[in-house]
Design a protein around this nucleic acid. Structure first.
Length: 102
DNA sequence: CCCGATTCCCCGC
DNA sequence: GCGGGGAATCGGG
């Protein structure tokens, strides 16, 4: 557990987020650079192996799009998935390429 | 009840 | 691997 996580959780609490969404966002923020996780892997990480859909929901509501590395979360098929932040999937791909994650 | 930044399975080419 | 079709599963409003 990183100290950053606590700060992030507090920051997220400023929004009207639920526990679940907070967990998902934190788990996403904890992804190391150059790494990518699938929605399912992320779901498993928060203890809900089958909530991949709900995970997508949480990321879609991601209030800190540019701050949280939601671009490191892709589909299990290898596709990008989506990106609600500015630039959309276009920027998502660019970011991943910049990080050498793909 | 309905929706969605999903996933997995089946079939055939 | 790719296309078409369908079902399962989860939280939020």
């Amino acid at each position: 557990m990183k100290i950053k996580e606590m700060q992030l959780r507090k920051l997220l609490s400023q929004f009207h987020l639920t526990e679940f969404e907070t967990e998902v966002l934190i788990a996403t923020a904890s992804i190391e650079e150059g790494k990518t996780l699938t929605y399912k892997e992320l779901a498993e990480r928060i203890g809900r192996p089958n909530s991949y859909r709900a995970v997508g929901n949480a990321l879609g509501r991601n209030p800190l799009a540019p701050e949280i590395p939601c671009h490191r979360v892709i589909k299990s098929s290898g596709e990008l998935g989506g990106y609600s932040g500015k630039g959309g999937n276009r920027k998502k791909k660019r970011l991943l390429r910049s990080e050498n994650a793909i």
